[in-house]
Nucleic acid binder design. Sequence first.
RNA 1: UGGGGCAUCGCCAAGCGGUAAGGCACAGGGUUUUGAUCCCUGCAUUCCCAGGUUCGAAUCCUGGUGCCCCAGCCA
Length: 562
Amino acid sequence: MSEEPVKKPTNFIRHIIDADLENGKNEGRITTRFPPEPNGYLHIGHAKSIVLNFGIAEDYNGRCNLRFDDTNPHKENSEFVEAIKADVHWLGCDPKENIFFASDYFEKLFAYAVELIKKGKAYVCDLSAEQIREYRGTLTQAGKNSSYRDRSVEENLTLFNAMRNGDFADGEKVLRAKIDMSSGNINLRDPTIYRVRHGIVHHQTGSQWCIYPMYDYTHCISDALEGITHSLCTLEFEDHRPLYNWFLEQLDVPHHPRQIEFSRLTLEHTVTSKRKLSELVEQGFVEGWDDPRMPTIAGMRRRGYSAASIREFCNRIGVTKAHNVVEMAMLEDCIRSDLNDNAPRRMAVLNPLKVVITNYDDSKVEDLLSANHPQNEEFGKRSIPFCNEIYIDRSDFAEVPPKKYKRLIPGGEVRLRNAYVIRCDEMIKDEQGELIELRCSVDADTLGKNPEGRKVKGVIHWVSAKHGISAEVRLFDRLFSHPTPDNTKDGSDYTAHINPEALRTLSHCVLENSLASAEIGQGFQFEREGYFCLDPAKTADGRPVFNRTITLRDVWAKMQSK
RNA sequence: UGGGGCAUCGCCAAGCGGUAAGGCACAGGGUUUUGAUCCCUGCAUUCCCAGGUUCGAAUCCUGGUGCCCCAGCCA
């Protein structure tokens, strides 16, 4: 059998690229770039862009640069730079030696600004920020020219150099492009291209500069300098494209990339705006950027999402210009399907209830050989100790069972997964009447075969009380109970919809002893419960912590909630 | 008549003049020592609306409607 070739995604951007290739543009070369601003951690929305840009580079034998858009040092820092590099790498994307910073081009950017001034296309403006806003006009009314618009080239040159030399305070002067104050496109109403910023140590250039270029001016030139052929960005930059092109047309740049916009990802039950994610971290709603409840790459990784599942998600949702809101179920299916194929099975009891097997020798221990994957023999087998004292989950016993319940009930039988059939003979309760233990008897003739003459429908998981290891398990759920917390009908704040159940900590779970050798991040299926992975943290008393990545599908729970 | 975009199943999304792919979700059924997985089956006579062109229109034309983005010295 031949391996099924991984089908390449198809979308309108790839169609454009195909057409460009057919027309012989850029000598058949394809170069893209992923341009994050290092002012926060990468999230699932960035993953869409990363997979798009690196995916195109790979499929077209091109290249994708990682370029930090670091023109606003006030908000940026190297912790974010390093985290972004790590996340891109973890996602399986390799920019190789092509890691750049917009700040690498500050000197060139300055020279291009001088060129603009010399061509009479830029001027130093003394208007205050408020005045600039007033002069800009409104959406329906044209703006008016700044009184500094007609300064001579010489004066502009002198002033711009003085700006660089630190002769002016923050806000005192800016450099503006001279375009058209009456344009219907507000971006073309003499946009600011350089501002003065004193007293900031830039994470890459230190204190070298006190003037910083703006995004619109920087981005297109950076793309041009790097020979980017297709500059892919989100829809809100559509209005900026005329400006992107304007700069490149005025300037003597080596190359003119094509900007193409696509719609950003909106995922239900979470938020993907850096401002909001920062707030969640800074205001302590979560424990950090890598909190497993966060839609950040780092958070999802810690939660147990694989890079492959995130890439699969990005390919499934596609790339278009249509506004879209993707259901969380789509993401959840991606990780379930990955882990179903790739996670070894284990047993773990989350809410332990002790069971004593009364007819089993209390000094005996049997090693039961169990498959690590029910459908894939390549996963091999492991041995699980069985003895007269075990734990089962409290939800797997019911004194008064609901309809169709097929787990353990008083006097009833159930199959212990990978082991024997037991019968519940007696319930032990404490003074408060709370169930604390079950006394059961085992049918010794049911190992690997069905009992004679009766059917046992239920199968439950268990862990040896004498061998199991104690652990903390964190059950994660959707961070927000509202599907679109930042866009509610009643206009409520997104923080009002944080799901208090998004994290439930179970401090005393019992895991199958083989889990003692689990590695951080490695995914396991805890049978009948879900997919879990070992967290880097330990409990205060040194016990392991496991994170629930996602539950198993559960039609029983669905039936019950109806 | 400010400018720029978008409208195909509950959600995502193919489709590019030849008679509506696929995935998710959902609903039934089968297998099963995970109420998991897996396997069947069903799920848009119709593509925002209305006209028009055509033998033939989701695709072309005309006119509407709805929704989104833009007035940072943020990106």
